[in-house]
Measured scan of single mutants.
Amino acid sequence: GSVVKEKKEKALIEVRPYVEYYNELKALVSKISSSVNDLEEAIVVLREEEKKASEPFKTDIRILLDFLES
């Protein structure tokens, strides 16, 4: 629970300088966080969101995924 939350919060802070739609990304992460149990599940849902998103938000999600998977 809290470790996953920390990882996601740290990821958002780390990617902030590189993303165009930070507030939207943060809102998406919050929405996903409330419906998943762990980081792996969150990553799966983020990948689905990435497929549906259009640029440049798609790239923002990709940047976040790269950080979460590192």
Rank of each mutant, 00 (worst) to 15 (best):
L65A: 09
I32M: 04
R62C: 07
I13V: 07
V29K: 01
V4S: 09
V44K: 09
L12W: 03
L25N: 00
V19E: 04
K31R: 13
D38H: 06
E20D: 03
D38E: 07
L25I: 03
E14S: 12
V15E: 02
R16T: 04
I32R: 03
V45I: 10
L28I: 03
T59E: 03
L64C: 02
A53R: 05
R16I: 13
L46Q: 00
K58D: 01
K5R: 11
E6D: 14
K58S: 09
I43W: 09
S33D: 08
K8Y: 15
S33F: 15
L64Y: 14
A11F: 06
F57Q: 01
K52E: 07
I13W: 07
E49H: 08
A42R: 02
L12Q: 01
S54I: 09
A27G: 04
V36D: 05
K5F: 11
E9I: 11
Y18R: 13
L68M: 08
E49N: 05
D66L: 15
R62V: 03
L25T: 00
V44P: 06
D66H: 15
D38W: 14
V45E: 11
V15Y: 01
N37F: 13
E69G: 12
E24M: 13
K58R: 11
L64A: 02
I43L: 11
E41D: 06
P17E: 11
S34A: 12
V44R: 10
S2L: 07
V36S: 06
A27N: 06
P17D: 14
P17Y: 04
Y18P: 07
R47T: 06
Y22F: 12
K31I: 07
E48H: 13
K5I: 11
V3D: 12
K5L: 13
K58L: 02
D60P: 04
A27S: 07
K26A: 13
K31D: 07
D60S: 07
I61V: 04
N37M: 08
F67K: 06
V36A: 07
S33R: 04
K51Y: 11
E20W: 14
I43V: 07
I13C: 13
S70F: 13
P56M: 04
V44T: 10
E9G: 04
K10E: 08
A27R: 04
V3W: 03
I43K: 05
K5Q: 13
I61M: 03
D38T: 13
G1C: 14
N37C: 06
I13R: 12
V4F: 14
K5C: 15
E55C: 12
Y21D: 11
S54D: 05
P56F: 04
S34Q: 12
E69K: 11
T59W: 14
R62P: 00
E50L: 09
R47M: 07
E6G: 11
P17T: 03
E9R: 06
L68T: 01
V29D: 00
S30I: 12
R62Q: 07
V15F: 02
K52Q: 09
S70H: 11
E24H: 07
Y18S: 08
E41F: 05
V45T: 06
K8H: 15
L12S: 01
V29C: 12
E9Y: 13
V29L: 10
D66A: 14
S54K: 06
A11M: 06
S34I: 07
I43Q: 04
S70N: 11
L46C: 02
E9M: 12
Y22R: 01
S2W: 01
I63S: 02
F57L: 02
A42F: 15
E55R: 09
E41T: 07
I61D: 00
L28D: 00
L25W: 03
I63D: 01
A42I: 14
L25P: 00
D38Y: 07
E20K: 15
K5V: 11
F57S: 01
L39I: 09
K52V: 07
E49P: 00
S33Q: 05
S35H: 10
L46Y: 02
V29R: 01
K31L: 08
Y21F: 11
R47F: 05
L25Q: 00
N23Q: 13
L46E: 00
E41R: 05
E14H: 13
E20C: 15
E50N: 05
N37L: 07
V45N: 08
E14Y: 12
K51N: 10
K52G: 06
E48I: 14
G1A: 12
K26L: 13
I32D: 02
Y22S: 04
E40T: 09
T59R: 14
I63K: 04
S2F: 02
A11Y: 04
T59S: 12
F67T: 04
T59H: 13
Y22G: 02
L68V: 04
V44C: 11
A53G: 02
V36G: 04
K7L: 15
K51Q: 10
F57H: 01
E9P: 04
K52L: 09
E69A: 11
V4N: 10
V3F: 03
L39N: 04
R47K: 10
P17N: 08
S70E: 10
L25A: 01
V45M: 14
E20R: 15
R47C: 06
E20Q: 15
S30F: 15
L64T: 02
E69H: 10
L68R: 01
S2I: 07
K10G: 04
P56I: 03
K58T: 03
I61G: 00
I61C: 02
S54G: 05
L65R: 05
P17K: 09
A42K: 02
N37Q: 10
R16P: 14
Y18H: 13
K5H: 13
E69P: 03
D38S: 12
V3L: 11
I43M: 11
V3A: 11
S35C: 05
E40P: 07
L65E: 00
S34N: 10
K10V: 09
L25E: 00
N37S: 10
N23M: 13
L25S: 00
L68H: 01
K52A: 10
I43S: 02
Y21T: 02
S30M: 15
Y21Q: 09
I63G: 01
P56G: 06
E41N: 05
F67A: 12
L68E: 00
A53F: 06
V36I: 06
L39A: 05
A42M: 15
E20T: 15
A11R: 02
A27W: 09
F57G: 01
I32L: 04
V4P: 06
R47L: 06
E48R: 14
L12N: 01
E6Y: 03
A53C: 04
N23L: 14
T59V: 04
K7Y: 14
I63Y: 08
V3Q: 09
R62G: 09
N23H: 10
E69F: 12
L46T: 01
L12E: 01
S34W: 14
K5A: 12
D60F: 15
E9W: 14
L46F: 05
I32S: 03
D66T: 14
V36Y: 05
I43F: 11
E20L: 15
K8R: 10
E9T: 05
A11W: 14
R62W: 07
E6K: 06
G1H: 08
K52N: 09
E48M: 14
E24C: 08
I13A: 13
V45W: 15
F57D: 00
K10C: 14
R16V: 07
E55H: 08
P56V: 04
Y18C: 13
V45Y: 15
E50G: 08
V44H: 10
F67H: 08
E55S: 05
S33C: 14
I43A: 03
V29M: 12
L25K: 00
E6C: 15
V4K: 04
I61T: 00
E55D: 07
L64V: 03
L12C: 06
D60M: 15
S70K: 11
V19W: 05
K7S: 08
V15L: 09
I63M: 05
E40V: 07
K26Q: 07
Y22I: 03
G1T: 11
K51A: 11
K26C: 05
N23T: 09
V29T: 03
K8S: 15
V29I: 06
V45R: 13
K52C: 07
I32F: 06
D66G: 12
D38G: 07
S33P: 05
T59L: 13
V44A: 10
E41H: 07
E48A: 13
K10P: 03
E48Q: 14
V4T: 08
S34L: 12
V19P: 07
L28P: 00
T59D: 03
K31A: 09
E14V: 09
I43D: 01
Y22V: 02
D38L: 08
I13K: 12
E41W: 05
D38A: 07
K10I: 13
A42P: 01
E40Q: 09
E6T: 08
E41P: 03
A27Y: 07
R47I: 08
S30C: 15
T59I: 06
S35D: 08
A42T: 13
E48V: 12
L25D: 00
D60A: 12
E20V: 15
E6I: 11
F57N: 01
E49F: 10
Y22W: 14
I61Y: 01
L28Q: 01
K8I: 15
I32P: 02
F57Y: 06
E14F: 12
Y22K: 01
Y21I: 02
F57C: 01
E14I: 09
T59Y: 13
K26E: 13
I61P: 00
R62S: 06
S70Y: 14
E14M: 12
K10L: 13
V4C: 15
A53T: 08
E50H: 12
L25Y: 01
K10D: 06
L28R: 01
L12R: 01
K10S: 07
K7I: 15
E14K: 10
V36W: 07
L39H: 04
R16F: 14
P56N: 03
L64E: 00
E9Q: 06
E55A: 10
V44L: 14
I13N: 12
V15A: 06
D66V: 13
E40C: 06
L25V: 02
E49A: 05
A27F: 10
E50C: 13
S34T: 09
L65N: 02
S54H: 09
E41Q: 08
L46W: 03
N37Y: 14
I43N: 02
